[in-house]
């Protein structure tokens, strides 16, 4: 979801006229979608009141979610039945079930919304699925347990993490070839691309760090370590990441350390640590960058963080083991 937002925002800004009538914000509901792994539902909250407005029976083990560029559909990756389901954002109904493969984890949609790239942890590959012809068009072997997937806004480059190999694979979409394997800290999980596209941030769960890759030559230029007071490196397991639309601030969820780190992107300084629920993973930021939602997998709730105040202001009950949050705004 984070990548979705990071990527499509500047796109919309550039082609504002084209976005026009179909613009996301024009009919955005502001609603918050939360997937939960153990009870197979996607919970929908009102963006203002945070009251539950719907609970959608989605599929088996819904995890990663992403809105299409026009915000009309929400794709949900389903780990245990090897599908992605399509939820119609307006009616909040499952309108389509796309058969992918068993083991589907994180995915990303191509900028034109026609291709879905997902990591398959069972076959250690990244798979390109054509959403128009409903066929797998490309399958690329990567390191064991691929997780994070990100396609660049120009649609040319695909990044995939391998948790076991501690690598980020840089893949040329056109040829399907791996251009480079970038060694990062242990157990890389997710990505965030700076809005200017110059830096790719990679959360590394076992390295208790974020590796920063310079995209011009795919070299690790920085490793940001997190040391919340009272926690040992063992308990600091960064997973989720999201950046503000100006690219100045990054939020990193620290997993078992139960905090979200607020990082100044330019200086890499950790300016604040916000206490949230247990095993914080999925993050989503409202369009105005004022509110951050944090999925807490082990406390079965979602923290609502007031970004200006720098603290959680509300905790909302969600499904069993919440995984990801997506905001339709």
């Amino acid at each position: 979801m984070k990548m979705n937002q990071q990527k499509f925002l500047p796109m919309c800004a550039l082609v504002l006229a084209m976005c026009g009538a179909a613009s996301a914000s024009a009919k955005a509901t502001g609603e918050v979608f939360i997937s939960s792994e153990k009870d197979n539902v996607v919970t929908v909250l009102d963006g203002k009141t945070q009251k539950q407005v719907a609970s959608i029976k989605a599929c088996k083990r819904p995890r990663h979610m992403q809105l299409t560029p026009d915000h009309q559909k929400l794709y949900v990756g389903c780990g245990d039945d090897g599908t992605a389901v399509v939820i119609d954002v307006a009616s909040k109904k499952v309108t389509e079930k796309v058969k992918l493969e068993e083991g589907v984890e994180i995915f990303d949609l191509s900028p034109d919304g026609k291709m879905l790239y997902f990591s398959n942890e069972d076959t250690a590959s990244v798979v390109g699925f054509d959403l128009v012809s409903k066929k797998v068009t490309i399958q690329i072997k990567v390191g064991e347990e691929p997780e994070g997937v990100l396609i660049t806004p120009d649609g040319k480059t695909l990044y995939v993490t391998s948790e076991v190999a501690s690598l980020v694979h840089v893949i040329d979409v056109a040829s399907g070839k791996i251009l480079k394997n970038v060694e990062v800290a242990k157990r890389p999980r997710r990505f965030a691309l700076t809005p200017d596209g110059k830096e790719l941030w990679v959360s590394c769960e076992m390295g208790s760090a974020v590796s920063v890759i310079r995209t011009s030559d795919h070299t690790v230029v920085d490793t940001i370590k997190f040391q919340p007071k009272g926690f040992r490196a063992d308990e600091v397991t960064p997973v989720g990441m999201i950046m503000t639309s100006d690219g100045k601030t990054a939020f990193v969820s620290l997993g078992r350390a139960n905090h979200v780190a607020v990082v100044d992107v330019a200086s890499r300084a950790v300016n604040n640590l916000i206490l949230v629920g247990k095993r914080a993973w999925g993050l989503a930021l409202t369009r105005d960058n004022s509110t951050l939602y944090v999925a807490n997998g082990m406390s079965d709730d979602v923290s609502v963080v007031d970004v200006a105040k720098g603290r959680a202001v509300k905790t909302i009950k969600a499904g069993r083991v919440p995984h990801s949050v997506v905001i339709d705004d």
């Binding site: 990567v142 390191g143 064991e144 076991v164 190999a165 690598l167 694979h169």
Partner: peptide, 9 residues
């Protein structure tokens, strides 16, 4: 087997 990529690298 699972270290194939790292080893090749």
């Amino acid at each position: 087997a699972e270290s194939e990529f790292q080893l090749n690298n």
